[in-house]
């Protein structure tokens, strides 16, 4: 998992952009690579891509704001995707959203102050039988309840802390 607060330089982004031919159609591919590398699209991205392929900055910005997979703000080390599709919604996804707010003090679309978590509301992850479903990074959690939620979050917090030895003192055991 990349560090969200990594100092991104224009050279880093240029290196990514140069992997692609200078053609309009590669704008999205470059942005996806930058997103993967830095966990968000820092402001200079648009200027760099503009210089590389010629598409106006405003149009690139529009592209970036259209796709949910691209983010203008740094994402947390752990991305929580809370499903709010029909089945999950009926089975209390909104409650879980409140539970996550209580545990991490973040709303959907935000990242926690320690940079460990960010929360996204998604519309169906295709496992409705397990509703309500929550996906953290690549791990699926089915039939999540308000009772099981804190343990799942704590597990990921612990894993991140072991990796980075940072932010551990803010651990919340709900």
């Amino acid at each position: 998992m990349p560090e969200p607060e990594k100092n991104v330089t224009v050279q880093d982004i240029e290196a990514i952009a140069r992997k692609y031919p200078a053609e309009k159609r590669f704008a999205l591919a470059i942005m996806q690579d930058v997103q993967r590398e830095f966990s968000y699209l820092p402001q200079p991205v648009f200027e760099v891509i503009h210089r590389h392929i010629g598409t106006p900055v405003a149009h690139l910005y529009a592209l970036a704001t259209f796709y949910k997979a691209l983010s203008l703000k740094p994402k947390g080390q752990n991305v929580i995707k809370l499903c709010d599709g029909t089945a999950c919604h009926m089975r209390g996804a909104s409650n879980l959203s409140k539970g996550i707010r209580a545990a991490l003090d973040i709303e959907p679309g935000e990242s926690s102050a320690d940079g460990l978590f960010s929360l996204e509301l998604v519309n169906c992850v295709g496992s409705c039988a397990l509703a309500p479903v929550m996906v953290i990074n690549e791990t699926y959690y089915g039939k999540v309840t308000m009772e099981s939620l804190p343990a799942i979050i704590a597990e990921h917090r612990r894993a991140s802390c072991e990796d980075t030895a940072a932010s551990c003192e803010t651990e919340v055991v709900a």
């Binding site: 149009h59 910005y61 704001t65 259209f66």
Partner: peptide, 9 residues
């Protein structure tokens, strides 16, 4: 110069 665009969705 393409200074504006439809932002968000």
């Amino acid at each position: 110069t393409g200074a504006i665009a439809a932002v968000n969705r």
